[in-house]
Design a protein around this nucleic acid. Sequence first.
DNA 1: TTCTTGTCAAGAGCACTGCTCTCGAATGTT
DNA 2: AACATTCGAGAGCAGTGCTCTTGACAAGAA
Lengths: 241, 241
Amino acid sequence: MPSLETKKAKPATPRERARAQTLVDIVRIGREHLAVHGAAALSLRAVARDLGVVSSAVYRYVQNRDELLTLLLIDGYNELGDQVDAAVAAAPEGDFAGQFRALGRAVRQWAIREPASYALLFGSPVPGYQAPGERTTAPGTRVIYRLVGIFEAAQRAGALNAEVSPGVVIPPDLAADLEAIRAGLGLSLPDEALARGVLAWTSIFGAISFEVFGQYGPDTFKARDELFEHQLAVLAGVAGL
Amino acid sequence: MPSLETKKAKPATPRERARAQTLVDIVRIGREHLAVHGAAALSLRAVARDLGVVSSAVYRYVQNRDELLTLLLIDGYNELGDQVDAAVAAAPEGDFAGQFRALGRAVRQWAIREPASYALLFGSPVPGYQAPGERTTAPGTRVIYRLVGIFEAAQRAGALNAEVSPGVVIPPDLAADLEAIRAGLGLSLPDEALARGVLAWTSIFGAISFEVFGQYGPDTFKARDELFEHQLAVLAGVAGL
DNA sequence: TTCTTGTCAAGAGCACTGCTCTCGAATGTT
DNA sequence: AACATTCGAGAGCAGTGCTCTTGACAAGAA
């Protein structure tokens, strides 16, 4: 769609410029409210108040509360994706385990810095809200794509340990799912490595969610950095790095 | 507190009986609403409507919305704890890996059956709601206590593999946390085993959360039972079982 | 330059929420 | 029978999402 691109690229008329500016203002204020009060308490009226405008005016820019939620969702996915990309790129090129740990650390640090956004992306779904897949899947898959990219590069470099948990077999139905993923992304990872990558993925988010969502309790773990580093190290071993 | 116990045990006066009955009715209706509309949309007015009573009447039984949330929280923790206890007890006595898998399956099945309750217990915290620790910690720690109990029994039986990830060391700060846990629960597990148990714990909930919260997407994994079984098997190996 | 067209903010209004207060009725106790 | 407690009903306040109408304003066309 070249027309849409150009429309986005050059907001020639001052009207469009003003409109775009108020929209980013709305998203910015929405992010602040999200951070302070949480996703379920996100109120268009409160955003309007902070914007210095009456409530009905924001409906000129945002169709409804759900669309603002979608904008914040995309915003969060992209910010997290940028953080992860930068962290992985800063790791040594051939050090795949280091890249894996850098990815995990980047996700955790972003989650701790933006707990409300993290909860919106990876926590319990907001009741009555269904994310529009056509707008959120692309930014929402950036981290996992990056992760399998690390595994794939390690595999091609011959740095992926294939014999980690020898006794575990993969049933055919699961193998079919993994084959579909492999075909969809053009990977050469064997089933075992792919499955362990999925486990590492979910485990990282499990550890972060426990910490961010307060499941550990107030004083069960004081050395949380060290705990997470330990979990990352073990998971890297599990994944074969 | 014997007086409180007797008060609970024999609701002699019919008034107290009726009061207790309406309270369990409120919790029951609250659970239904939780399952249908989610935690953030839990409305005392709607509960009152279903109870056939005006909204202000429920405030005679429940102090506010947060207390109803607390009651549902305790209810959920206990239901999950009962499921886990039953599943673990049904596993063969000396088969510690089997008990571990039974625990994981029980948690997952309950989570799939009661996704809203699972979200309330382990998902993003409800904004503005702080669980009262003195009432929720006891039921909230049943599952993790059960899990470390399995590890402890395996350790005493000499069935715990100590050399799983040899290269990973535990820094002193983390060791201090683990020592406090070990002392608090009267365990004899070494640091490595305890830390890997925590990892297994968070990883199980990470896998279940991804599935229940819809992070996998609609059709990435069709063989979800097999995927979870695979993850359980790998995690049992990681934990040393 | 005037006129038309489209965009915008404002405000009223509907239905909903949590929560508090008062009042009268029902209930159990003495 | 008299008293005290408990309970439900209803009104009311402040907040929410969202819709609709109204009037002001600015951009482009004649």
